[in-house]
Design a protein around this nucleic acid. Structure first.
Length: 434
DNA sequence: CTGGGGAGGGGGCCC
DNA sequence: CGGGCCCCCTCCCCA
């Protein structure tokens, strides 16, 4: 027989003990403010504390203390209250920092609730905006913005799928942030340059869906966490899909009965877009495009070049790379930029890289033709076909020949005869890339 | 320091 | 829905 109230009662008691500093065996110092808590509870709630306490318990029996500078006492209050009550007091003001702290403390429940909060906030913002522009919404009551910003999770409301409630101050907040850091352990922050590009591109996207709502998560203590991009990718896609399924109508657009989108009268002639990126304000028409777009957030690069090992997020980019870098498809002399044919020039191989030189430039450089086993190289230097698990589909023998090519060194110039009839090129590219 | 070109990367869209 | 093409932008290297 199970008494359903036992868990919550127990939690209440523990919370009471914490408030009265009874049996507290752990102190957490956050920017000078001391929080008392129970090791057992912290241990059970946070991966970070689990690690910390399991280490300190080996070393000493003294009361454990932890010090944090990465987040504010207010934020930790929210976290600690959640630990002891199962209720997360999220607002537009604190959600970013709470998520950041939760990420640091490895509290996946809290992270996912924060993500949902942010996501839902975006949904609601879209709806708000939609209503603002259309002035004809029929479901204003269902978008109640005054609901209390409490989230149940963990012990109390595990089954409930939390929806976000916007605080009135949301709009202000989003402007300050630009990108979500990977919230969980083993999630990979996109490359710095990508972030920069992303930020730039966002300004472009903002034309489509304003106000800016992208969310930036300050990395706790500046720690870059290693990542499992595939995990993240799957998560993102799932989230994106949910977005699209639940409510992803961009400004001015709403769903009809089926999957069709009906655009309302709108000041700008916006395209009919319907899939919104959960990480930025980008909106696309097709799910496949969103899937592709998500890779720029997840950093996923499923297409490795078998010739040089460089990885690409898209097959067409890999193909393009392979053609220009490893197949010398451009009929242009690299040196003098003149057009060359198989009669007026030759392909030069430099390591795994190939390009063309006209006969004049070849003579100038002073390189004689050297025999190259073209067939074998074509075999080993072909882009993988969507190699999801990052392994190259090569036999051992093929692998060896690849290694030989790479180890051949990039300084050696190898000349081979140009044999680039169109048919030949087709043959070289197509079978490998599919 | 600056401009040009190559390469990479992202979006739109056609097939 | 995936593949692939085109276009555009940014970064980096080099003259």
């Amino acid at each position: 027989m199970e008494i359903s109230s036992h868990q919550s009662h127990l939690l209440q008691q523990l919370n009471e003990q914490r408030r009265q500093d009874v049996f507290c065996d752990c102190s957490i110092l956050v920017e000078g403010k001391v929080f008392k808590a129970h090791r057992n509870v912290l241990f059970a709630s946070s991966g970070y504390f689990k690690m910390l306490l399991s280490q300190s318990s080996k070393e000493t029996s003294q009361p454990a203390t932890a010090t944090f500078q990465a987040f504010s006492p207010d934020t930790f209050t929210v976290i600690l209250d959640f630990v002891y009550s199962g209720k997360l007091s999220l607002t537009g003001q604190n959600v970013i920092e709470v998520m950041s702290a939760a990420s640091f403390l490895q509290m996946t429940d809290v992270i996912s609730v924060c993500k949902t909060f942010i996501k839902s906030s975006l949904d609601i913002s879209e709806k708000e905006k939609d209503r603002y522009f259309s002035l004809s919404d029929k479901d204003t009551s269902s978008n109640g913005v005054e609901r209390p910003p409490f989230y149940g999770s963990g012990w109390q409301e595990e089954s409930a799928s939390p929806r976000a409630h916007l605080s009135p101050d949301h709009g202000k907040l989003w402007n300050k942030y630009s990108y979500p850091a990977a919230p969980q352990r083993n999630t990979q922050p996109p490359l710095a340059s990508e972030q920069r590009k992303d930020a730039i591109k966002k300004t472009k996207h903002l034309r489509l869906s304003q106000p800016p709502q992208a969310v930036h998560l300050k990395s706790a203590q500046g720690e870059a966490r290693p990542s499992d991009s595939s995990n993240h990718a799957a998560q993102s896609e799932e989230q994106a899909q949910t977005d699209a399924e639940i409510d992803s109508a961009p400004a001015g657009c709403q769903y009809g009965q089926g999957s069709d989108v009906t655009c309302r009268s709108f000041p700008d002639d916006l395209p009919r877009l319907r899939f919104r990126c959960p990480y930025c304000t980008h909106v696309v028409k097709r799910k496949a495009d969103l899937k592709r777009h998500l890779r720029c957030h997840t950093g996923e690069r499923p297409y490795p070049c078998q010739a040089c090992g460089k990885r690409f997020s898209r097959l067409d980019h890999l193909s393009s790379h392979f053609r220009t870098i490893h197949q010398a498809c451009k009929l242009i002399c690299r040196k003098c930029k003149r057009h060359v044919t198989d009669l007026t020039g030759q392909v030069v191989q430099e390591g795994t890289r190939r390009y063309r030189l006209c006969n004049e430039c070849l003579a100038e450089v002073g390189i004689d033709s050297l025999p190259v086993d073209l067939e074998a190289e074509q075999h080993s230097m072909s882009p993988a076909d969507g190699d999801k698990d990052s392994r190259w589909h090569l036999s051992e023998e093929e692998n060896r020949s690849y290694v030989e090519i790479v180890e051949d060194g990039s300084s050696d110039l190898v000349i081979k005869q140009v044999e680039d009839s169109e048919e030949e090129e087709e043959k070289e590219i197509k079978p490998n890339i599919r």
